[in-house]
């Protein structure tokens, strides 16, 4: 059983490697340029999956935090923290590549689009969660869990709120419907990114669990000496 679970992470990376290569060569060599946005559109193929990754990880973190609160499970706490870290990474990726893409296509890095603002606010919640977990130490772990849950609950609310808020501002152009060959390039890229991220996520979660067990072992050792 133990052996099997240890095989999961290498398997994820082994599966991801050819997919990464395949999707990158597809993006750059075999996908026609989008007509109105030109070559810069190729940013889309990893930008959007990063956004989805960020949302997914925020959701996982929220659910894990809820389990942590209800069941007093340390494992769930580790999973929540690991998911939040990956979500932070994904969010940072989206927030950095978004303005680059926007600058290339619209000539402005920030349009205040509902998705942009939602991602930025979600990212702030994740950052607050990580700050609290890192500096709040053990006593504020439960509070951090509440923060993660609120982060997950907030996503649809923020999105809706920003859409309402935008009705008082000029609207920006949306991405037109994509032809099927674009999607054919998009899915392998998404799969590759998810595989890599879940591999990293599994490593980090196991590290955190191990660190918790180590701390406990130290305490027991000192207790036995005393």
């Amino acid at each position: 059983m133990k052996r099997k679970s240890e095989l999961v992470v290498p398997l994820l990376f082994v599966a991801a490697a050819p997919l990464v290569v395949y999707s990158v060569q597809r993006v750059f060599l075999h996908t026609p340029n989008e007509r109105t946005m030109g070559t810069a559109f190729k940013i889309f193929f990893f930008h959007v999956p990063m956004g989805w990754l960020c949302m997914l990880m925020a959701l996982i973190s929220g659910i894990a935090a809820y389990v942590q609160l209800r069941r007093r499970s340390r494992t769930a706490g580790a999973v929540a923290l690991a998911a939040a870290e990956i979500g932070f990474l994904g969010g940072l990726g989206v927030l950095l590549t978004g303005p680059i893409w926007g600058h290339a296509t619209w000539g402005t890095p920030w349009t205040g689009d509902a998705r942009q603002v939602t991602t930025a606010l979600l990212w702030l919640v994740i950052a607050a969660y990580l700050l609290l977990r890192h500096f709040g130490q053990h006593a504020s772990e439960r509070l951090a869990a509440a923060l993660a849950i609120f982060g997950a609950v907030n996503v649809p609310l923020i999105y809706y709120a920003v859409k309402l808020w935008k009705t008082t501002h000029p609207t920006t152009g949306v991405v037109a419907k994509l032809p099927p060959e674009m999607w054919a390039t998009f899915w392998p890229g998404l799969a590759a990114l998810l595989l890599v991220s879940f591999g990293l996520f599994a490593i980090r979660a196991r590290q955190l669990i191990l660190a918790g067990e180590l701390d406990e072992a130290y305490v027991r050792l000192e207790d036995s000496r005393a």
């Binding site: 702030l124 607050a128 609290l132 982060g151």
Partner: peptide
């Protein structure tokens, strides 16, 4: 919590948006 006194605003503002 009894832990370190974190800044309430750091936690509260992102969640109350």
């Amino acid at each position: 919590g009894g832990g370190k006194n974190m800044l309430l605003a750091v936690i509260l503002y992102p969640v109350t948006t």
